[in-house]
């Protein structure tokens, strides 16, 4: 499957809080254009893992490499400049700005014009901002206050912001949480399409197994801070250990999935 070069390589990632291991010896990799899901019970260490990948937290041990370059412990803003975009479990946008301005701020940062004091931001790279909004399907809301967007559209806006710096890797923390089933599928299809077209690697966490089984090329399963399984959706679905600790009896997600992956 992954003929593409390794984009993200994680080795022996470890982090503990007050003597309790949140993440212990986790190693995996993501290739360009690949969509990888990180799943596991609540409290398994998924968020901690994510936070260490984009520099929100510093690991106690282990390395994170992006295209061979060691990025361990660099602050989030530096990791972003190397081409890692992130969306959050609870959307983080700028509620007092319009939808377009949200993207424009990211473009300002990408163009390194943060300390420019005389240009007008509302006119800054308007075209590019609108193109990104169009791409994720919220082009019609550009002038709206961001605080008025429906939740699903906020998630799309976050994706547009994350795409503003032409990322190589997208980290998406529960990208479809709080969305209706069809919205979930649509957002993930969109993500998959963009990932394929621009050869972006995607790593996402998710509790909706319908989304995971449908869109992930590969699944990593985390439990109590360690990786307990890794493989194709089919492998993971059949894994008895994963069923016991995480999937349960399959009552609350659609068990009739197509084989294989991707849209």
């Amino acid at each position: 499957m992954s003929v593409a070069p390794t984009l993200l390589a994680v080795e022996d990632l470890t982090k503990s809080y007050g003597g309790v291991h949140a993440v212990r010896g986790v190693s995996f990799s993501v290739a360009a254009g690949e969509i990888v899901a990180l799943i596991g019970p609540n409290g398994a260490g998924k968020s901690t893992c994510f936070d260490m990948l984009n520099g929100q937290k510093t690991p106690d041990r282990g390395r994170v490499r992006l295209l061979g370059e060691d990025i361990t412990g660099r602050p989030p803003r530096a990791v972003w400049r190397l081409g890692v975009g992130r969306t959050f479990q609870i959307t983080a946008t700028f509620p007092t700005m319009t939808v377009r301005e949200n993207v424009q701020v990211a473009l300002v940062s990408y163009a390194n014009k943060i300390f420019n004091v005389w240009r007008s931001t509302p006119d800054f790279e308007r075209g590019e901002a609108d193109r990104l909004l169009e791409l994720v399907g919220v082009g019609g809301y550009a002038e709206r206050p961001c605080g008025e967007l429906a939740y699903g559209d906020l998630k799309r806006l976050e994706l547009a912001i994350a795409l503003a710096n032409h990322p190589r890797l997208l980290l998406m923390d529960e990208p479809t949480a709080g969305m209706a089933p069809r919205e979930r599928i649509e957002l993930m299809r969109l993500t998959a399409r963009i990932a394929r077209e621009q050869s972006i690697g995607v790593l996402f966490t998710e509790h909706d197994m319908d989304v995971v089984f449908e869109h992930a090329n590969r699944i990593l399963v985390l439990n109590r801070g360690t990786l307990i399984a890794e493989g194709s959706p089919d492998d993971v679905r059949r894994d008895p250990q994963v069923r016991a600790i995480y999937l349960g009896e399959g009552l609350v997600y659609d068990a009739r999935h197509r084989e294989g992956a991707g849209a």
């Binding site: 609540n42 479990q89 509790h207 399959g250 009552l251």
Partner: peptide
């Protein structure tokens, strides 16, 4: 929304 953001197994327990 008691099931929001919970793993499938916990959702079953919740049910």
């Amino acid at each position: 929304e008691p099931s929001e953001g919970l793993s499938p197994k916990i959702v079953e327990q919740m049910a």
